[in-house]
Structure formats: structure tokens, C-alpha cells
């Protein structure tokens, strides 16, 4: 039954859009949406397919991964479905659909950055750690080199350059093509891991 409906919708899509050029397709979204509001499932499937086609590049330019684009696109299509009674078929369709897409994108980005902030490391905390005189500690780089090697390769390389070869965070950043703050954060995370291991 499901495949029959699927085939039927696809046929409807081809029947309806086969007749139109690409420009026509977007121009006729208003008419198709009007049919959808009257319960025409084929027209509605076409509108949603076209909307997804229009929105995908819009989202891809603003998000990093394809899976993120797919997830958000699904969320937007569901929002369009929920809000379809706010469209009357009389005004242009695209501004209406883009308004919903932007709204969901902003929500998504807000949640994304809030999550990032939640897991972020306070830079001042990092600075404090970096000011600790590591050379005067009970441990030397050589004495804990075994533990350092167990760290993720990037963190290990940063510690080696800073504490064995004597580079500053800025110099390390230039050498490995990272931002200075990113080097400091990576070093801070490495210190945390080492501290935990050595405290055992």
C-alpha cells in the first residue's frame, strides 16, 4: 500500500511538473499550495519536494554537515506542514516558506551555540594553568613522557613543542596552523588529563 501511494505521488509530481520549466515550477508553487489547502495530496507532495529543493542550498551555505542540513530540512518541512493554514495561496509562496526556514534555522543555531558555550573552556582558566611554572614542578617532561604519548596526537605534539622544545603557545600556533587560543585550550585539556592520571 505504502509503495503504491509513493508511486502515485511520484507520478503526480511528474505529471504536474513535467509540463513546467524550472521557472514555472516556482511560479506555480502558489497555485499548487492552494490545491494542497483543498486537500490535494499530489500537489502538496510536489510543493514539499520543491520547497526542499529550494531550501537545501540555503541551509547548506549556513551549516557544516550534510546530516545537519537533512535534520533541519525535515524540521522545516514539518513546521511548514503545521503552519500551512497561515498561507492562503494569494501571496508569494517563497517568502512565506523562507520565513519559516529562517525561524527554524535561528532556533537551531541558537541551540547549537548554547550547547557549545556550555562545553566551552573559560580562557582565563586556561591562562591560569599556563602561568603555572611547570619547569619547577615535581615532574619533568621526560618523567611523564610515557603518559604524554598516550594523549591524543595533537595534544601530545603541542605539549612536546611547548615543554620539550621550548616554544611559546603563539609559536606553536604558527607552526601547526592553529589559533593561539585553540593551542592554549588544547594544552589546558592535556594538563587536565595528565593531572588526573598523575593524581591516581
Amino acid at each position: 500500500m505504502y509503495w503504491l501511494i509513493r508511486a502515485d505521488l511520484k507520478k503526480g509530481y511528474n505529471e504536474i511538473f513535467g509540463k513546467f520549466s524550472l521557472t514555472d515550477k516556482t511560479e506555480n508553487l502558489e497555485a499548487l499550495m492552494k490545491l494542497s489547502l483543498n486537500g490535494d495530496q499530489r500537489a502538496y507532495a510536489v510543493v514539499l519536494q520543491e520547497t526542499a529543493r529550494l531550501l537545501r542550498p540555503f541551509l547548506a551555505r549556513r551549516l557544516n554537515s550534510v546530516s545537519e542540513v537533512d535534520d533541519l530540512l525535515q524540521e522545516i518541512l514539518i513546521s511548514i506542514h503545521k503552519a500551512r493554514h497561515t498561507y492562503d495561496g494569494e501571496r508569494p509562496y517563497k517568502p512565506w516558506a523562507y520565513a519559516i526556514a529562517k525561524f527554524r534555522l535561528q532556533d537551531h543555531l541558537r541551540a547549537h551555540y548554547a550547547d557549545h558555550l556550555h562545553h566551552a573552556v573559560e580562557l582565563s582558566e586556561v591562562e591560569n594553568d599556563l602561568q603555572v611554572p611547570v619547569t619547577k614542578s615535581d615532574f619533568t617532561y621526560e618523567s611523564i613522557s610515557g603518559e604524554i604519548e598516550k594523549l591524543p596526537p595533537k595534544q601530545a605534539a603541542i605539549l612536546q613543542m611547548m615543554h620539550q622544545e621550548g616554544y611559546t603557545a603563539k609559536e606553536v600556533a604558527e607552526k601547526i596552523g592553529m589559533k593561539e587560543s585553540a593551542v592554549k585550550v588544547a594544552a589546558h585539556r592535556a594538563y587536565k588529563i595528565l593531572r588526573k592520571i598523575l593524581e591516581r
Binding site: 509513493r6 489547502l37 507532495a45 493554514h85
Partner: peptide, 18 residues
């Protein structure tokens, strides 16, 4: 996306525009 479109289209009962 295709599956979602199909499932939403199947749910598309007539609605009265606002």
C-alpha cells in the same frame, strides 16, 4: 526527506486558510 514528504502529503487533509 522523500519519506517525510510522502508521509506529510498523506496527512494533508483540507485546511481552512487563516
Amino acid at each position: 526527506i522523500d519519506e517525510l514528504v510522502e508521509s506529510l502529503a498523506r496527512d494533508a487533509a483540507p485546511v481552512k486558510p487563516a
